[in-house]
Design a protein around this nucleic acid. Sequence first.
DNA 1: AACGATCCCTGTTGGC
DNA 2: TGCCAACAGGGATCGT
Length: 285
Amino acid sequence: MPELPEVENTRRFLVPVLEGSVIRDAEVRRQRMARRNLRPDDVPERLRGRRLERLGRHGKFLLGELERDLTLVVHLGMSGRLRVARAGEPEDPHTNVVLHVDGDTEVRFVDPRTFGFVAVLTPDERADSSLSALGPDALLDPPRPETLGARFAGRAAAVKALLLDQRILSGLGNIYADEVLHRARVNPTRPGGSLSPAELRALCEAIPAVLEDGIRHGGTSLDDLAYLLPDGRAGEYLGRLAAYGRTGLACPRCGTPIVRAVVAQRSTHWCPVCQPSAIGMGGAA
DNA sequence: AACGATCCCTGTTGGC
DNA sequence: TGCCAACAGGGATCGT
């Protein structure tokens, strides 16, 4: 699923395509994709003829700074991907939004499950949106152990749930949360408030390390339905995952079979030896 | 306030 | 072989 490394790879690919370019026209073919706008019809209207000055990212949100203080917001949801193509090239199914850029370049938003969205927001609308509630970007502004500890203090919820909470830290999703916890040797079911200073330090080391590793390898493409780079290539990180999706397979660190359980309503994978459920105990959770 | 449950979607998977 | 329920998940929202 698109998480921070996939969104960042998408962003880097799109920077030379979009930055400084004029969006000549835009089509929203499924109204649902524009549902975060007060009026869905605003999207093409607000994009038409406007230059995109800078393409940034906060967590899993792509943020395009447009002329006259408008922001283009794109979230890939769980099955969204952006595809760069020439006009007239065959379209992938579920091409729900198309941006027509300079020349005959198109940026196509393909999203079968429509959990993604596009929005074009004024500064006021942006301030009122959930964007303003996002926590610091997990890569650009990685947490220090003391600040993460302060956010986790007193929390009974599983540390996995807290890592997925975009208001605490922005960018981790289900795959990279499992990978971060594995690298840091922290059991996903542990109450957030119970982590030791050493475990908080390990988490803070693991968060940027795992994300940078994911970015370096082009992100994680689980299957052909999910995330692909904007030129259609798959990311290479799938084969490097240590925990996520590896139920019954050997932990790359100790060889113990990875276990799976539902934590925080999400499929969760960990090594019962490297990530014991209680300090000093080596058994399964 | 914190936390868990539910819903939105649809392609894929697994069971019978 | 064919059908269909279950499953996957980010984020909004709701109930406790």
